[in-house]
Structure formats: C-alpha cells, structure tokens
Design a protein around this nucleic acid. Structure first.
Length: 340
DNA sequence: CGGTTTTGACCAGCGC
DNA sequence: GCGCTGGTCAAAACCG
C-alpha cells in the first residue's frame, strides 16, 4: 500500500500555462522496486511551464492569472470550498493521507521511513565499525566521515522545462554527475553553497518525457533566503525558514537567481484541518510585493490551494510569526497581486 | 584569483 | 560473493 496525495493547479492565462501537480507517495518499503516515484520520492510536484524561471512567466500578467480552485478526492465527494475566481486545485488524498508529512524538519514520517526506524543513536553505535572500515579506506581515499549519516527528507519537483536548472535564488554547486540507468540523460548532483547548509539537489530529465526535469531536494536550508535579484524579497534572517524545498539555480556560473523557493514546512494538506491559517504579511518587506491578500476572498472561501500558498510560507520555528516567501506557486498565483 | 563545473574514481547498498 | 547502480569525493579545468 502506499499513500498518495495529489494537488493539481491549473492556470488559465495566455502567459501562464501552469499545470502543477503535487503528489506524494510514501512507498510501503522505501527503496523498493517499482516506479521512480515509488522508490525515490517523498513528495513530488509537477510544474509545467516553458520558461527558465517561474517568475519569468509573469512578466506581462495581464489579465491576472485565472485560476480555478477545486478539490477532488478519489473516494470522497469534492470537499471544502471552491474559489471560482481562480486556481484549480485537485487534492486527491487517499486513505491514510493524514499520515503524510511534507515538513522537512517535522516530517517524522518521512525520516522514519527513510531510516527504517533507525535513530541517530543507532548511527553512533556504528562508529566503531565505521572507524575500522575507514582505516582501510584511508589508504585509498579518506571519505565518508559519517557513512551511515541520517538521510534527510526528500521530495521531488517535476518541471516541464527546456532547461535543467530552475532558478530559485539559492545557490547551488554541482558536485557530481552520473549517467542514469535506462535514461539517456545524466543526473547531476548539487549542493547548497551556503556554509553549513547541507541541502542537496538532484536534477535529471525524465527518460519518458525529456521535456520534464525532475528535481529532487534533500535536506533543509539552515540559512535565510540568500538573495533577491528580482527586486523583491529576502526572508527575515531572524526567522530562518527551513525550506524543505528549493530549486533551480546553480549552474552556468554567475549565480543569479530568482525569488522562488518552496517552503513546505507545513504540510499542505492542512486544508483538512478545520481552522484556517491567517494570511501572511511579510513584515520585513513592507512592500506590497510580498503581501498575499487575495482580494475579495474571505477566509471561508479560501481554497486549499490558497491555503497551501499560505502554509508553505510558514516557518516552523515561528509558528505565530509567518514569514512570506516567494515560491513557485506564489509566482504562479500571486504575481498580479504583488504587482498591485 | 576565487568560485564553479567536469569527470574519473571510490564507496555503499542492494539484488541475484 | 559478485556485479550493478546510486551517491560522493576531489583534482583538474574552466570561467568571470
């Protein structure tokens, strides 16, 4: 059995043909056989756009993105509210979906699965054995100080794009590339260049559909959002968000970057919870460019998608202080609002 | 010159 | 045990 949850977002805009699908599968046995996703992903998101940077999609945001939000459940009637004016969100949680977590630091489910229940203490116990091994290895190459290092939560982001590296503002350094079995396209390995930030990213193209770039993120950023090249944000240094997701950037020298980053620090399926989260207003950037306040959208009519947009901006370390973040979805939906 | 990319080698895990 | 594959390292090359 596996848990699966999907969230589709369709955008109707001549300049914005976003077709985003978030889905998650928690395989019964992590790493077991099956599809790439079964074995590999904690969460998967699909973003369909043709540009290099999501933010670029919205250069002429006229008219505002027409998004229709709806929810679907495979075995349940369409729940929750609809926001007819905009985005379409298809949320398809199956059974046990409530056990799914997208949180990086809080994603105990994911971590537990990936470690098969191993704890950090277990790793410590292996030190002796590891040292013995490393003694031999040192003759060849001193590597792997912590071979059984706890694996960070991961999730993937599928992007339909011509380019491999989506610009998210974080800086990535490529540290490896490998040919992928059954795929003509190599997989590249990237690491966040920030000091003491262990976030990793893998980028590969789907062998089935070469136009799709699969970006897998591992770990959590332990630093504030690094740059604001497109004239907007920077997450407050006082409230470092642990972005379970961040993408793009890196290659091609010159750093650069957009303002996109996902912060799935709160599970986006939180729409299942009765209470709504308040809107986020970035206090560090008084400019309206960061404010998310959907016009004419009462909290009662917030779609799950809208709530997703909010939730993903939350910082777990500051549950009562919400910090705005420019993420891909935000780019999809809120550009017009921000422009205003 | 410093940062990034490339690339071959090495290591670990897994399946047979 | 062996081979395959994924992931990482690190030196060299590259680039601004």
């Amino acid at each position: 059995m596996e848990n699966k949850q999907e969230l589709k977002i369709h955008s109707e805009n001549s300049n914005l043909m976003a077709n985003t699908t978030f889905s998650e599968q928690i395989p019964a046995v992590y790493g077991g056989g099956g599809s790439f996703f079964d074995a590999y992903l904690d969460m998967l998101a699909f973003q369909d756009y043709g540009g290099a940077c999501l933010s670029d999609l919205f250069q002429p945001p006229t008219p505002p993105p027409s998004l229709v939000v709806e929810q679907q459940q495979n075995h349940h009637p369409p729940p929750v509210s609809t926001v007819p004016e905009t985005a379409e969100v298809v949320n398809t949680p199956t059974q046990n979906s409530s056990s799914i977590s997208y949180s990086s630091n809080e994603g105990a489910n994911i971590v537990d699965q990936e470690n098969n229940g191993r704890s950090a203490d277990d790793d410590v116990d292996d030190d002796d054995e590891d040292q013995e091994k490393s003694t031999t290895n040192k003759q060849l190459k001193p590597k792997k100080k912590n071979p059984k290092k706890q694996r960070e939560p991961r999730f993937a982001f599928m992007t339909k794009s011509d380019i491999d590296h989506l610009d998210d503002g974080y800086r990535w350094r490529k540290y490896g590339q490998k040919a992928v079995k059954n795929s003509p396209y190599p997989r590249s390995y990237h690491r966040c260049t920030s000091v003491a930030c262990g976030v990793k990213k893998r980028v590969e193209r789907s062998s089935d559909d070469p136009s799709i770039v699969i970006t897998t993120y591992e770990g959590t950023h332990t630093h504030p959002y690094p740059m604001t090249p497109r004239g907007t944000i920077g997450i407050s240094p006082e409230t470092p968000c642990y972005g379970g997701f961040s993408g793009g950037g890196g290659g091609g020298g010159g750093g650069g970057g957009s303002v996109s980053s996902f912060l799935f620090t709160q599970p986006y399926y939180q729409h299942l919870q009765p209470q709504l989260q308040p809107y986020v207003h970035n206090q560090t950037t008084p400019s309206s460019s960061l404010s998310f306040s959907p016009p004419n959208a009462s909290t009662h009519h917030l779609s799950s998608y809208s709530r997703l947009l909010q939730e993903r901006r939350f910082c777990p370390s500051a549950s009562s202080t919400f910090v705005a973040d420019h993420g891909l979805l935000e780019d999809v939906v809120l550009f017009q609002i921000r422009k205003d």
